[in-house]
Amino acid sequence: MTSTQDAGLHRPTLIIGLALFALAMITFHDAWNMKIRASYGMGADAASYFVAGFLGLLAIGHLIAAFRPQPEADAADWAGVIWVSLGLAGLTLSVWLGGGFILGSTLLFVLTARAFGRKAILTDLLIGLALGLGIFLLFNKLLTLALPAGPLERLF
């Protein structure tokens, strides 16, 4: 947050403002369609209307702020972000499709390490595998907490 934009439209602020406005509309719509009414006092919709109104005000605040000088976000290394995202997607898909926790967490570990610039993939693969296996054994065997199981987990 070092430099400040001088003039003109600040796009991220505008987009966040529009997103807040959309949230406010969804919330309002949801509250409008509530069927159960409270017999006494306020119903469950009151808080929804309050939050919708609050978000609406914040949206207006953002729209105004978008035309004022805003701190510019620092440069980002998007490649790194994408590597980590791939890692998170790898874990999610592995759990979803029944690949299990060890496989997923190994992927996450390796891809995160890659994001930080490591190239020794084989070493990281082994470390990740050992970490995932260690966690799995600790949880499933010692604490018998059910981590998602896949082909690797069934070996134990």
Binding site: L88, L91, S105, V110, A146
Partner: peptide, 29 residues
């Protein structure tokens, strides 16, 4: 690289161990 790799593994592990569902994992991400 290893520190953050480990943090992410432990963080996601804690969440799915406490609540083993893909929806919970998607929310976390």
């Amino acid at each position: 690289p290893w520190l953050y790799g480990g943090i992410l593994v432990f963080a996601s592990m804690g969440t799915i161990a406490a609540n083993p569902s893909v929806v919970e994992l998607l929310m976390l991400v």
